[in-house]
């Protein structure tokens, strides 16, 4: 198990970037080099805001550039708008965003179906490579999921039966 200590004198480039000054245990930033604290210094031109952009309330405005292909939509969009009422410092910002992401997944499946496309989840999950390179573990996992699902359904149904018999 023990691996060999390395003789670093043989390594191409050993120590070429060594810097005794780069010892962050001690203060090291040269403050005199810092630019003025004006974040609008030479602000780049604004990308036209043609779609809804939710921006962090920890800044005054939308940045000069932004991704514009996926504005918030649907129920997930409603939740995202709510989240962006709160700063990045708040759980009320991040937890709704995670919720919105999950709602978005359901909306995504519905949109697929509405477009007449049944998502091939087996392919989207890349199960083909599990089958190819990890077959035993993959089959075991799938069998477990099927067994647990079938078991749960049977259990729930037997509960129903008892109830209906009691009636």
């Amino acid at each position: 198990m023990q691996t060999q200590r390395i003789d670093y004198t043989q390594i191409n480039g050993w120590g070429v970037d060594a810097d005794p000054e780069n010892d962050p245990t001690y203060p090291m930033q040269h403050r005199e080099d810092a630019p003025p604290r004006d974040i609008f210094y030479d602000r780049p031109p604004q990308q036209p805001i043609t779609v809804e952009v939710l921006h962090s309330i920890e800044r005054p405005d939308v940045t000069a550039v932004f991704g514009a292909t996926l504005p918030p939509t649907g129920l997930s969009g409603v939740i995202r708008r709510f989240a962006f009422k709160y700063s990045e410092n708040e759980y009320k910002h991040w937890l709704p965003l995670i919720l919105a992401d999950r709602v978005d997944v359901v909306e995504g499946v519905l949109k697929d179906l509405a477009h007449g496309h049944v998502p091939n989840i087996f392919a989207e999950k890349g199960y083909a490579v599990e089958w190819k390179y990890n077959r035993t573990a993959f089959v075991t996992k799938m069998a477990t999921i099927v067994a647990v699902t079938v078991g749960t359904i049977l259990l729930l149904n037997s509960g129903k039966d008892k109830k209906s018999k009691r009636k």
Binding site: R59, T63, F66, T69, F84, E88
Partner: peptide, 24 residues
Amino acid sequence: HQANAMATAVGGIFGYSHTAGGFD
């Protein structure tokens, strides 16, 4: 500070969610 409108703690990153600017 001019690359990610959605989160001030994170810079802008290509293809890295809206928390990193929403860029494809």
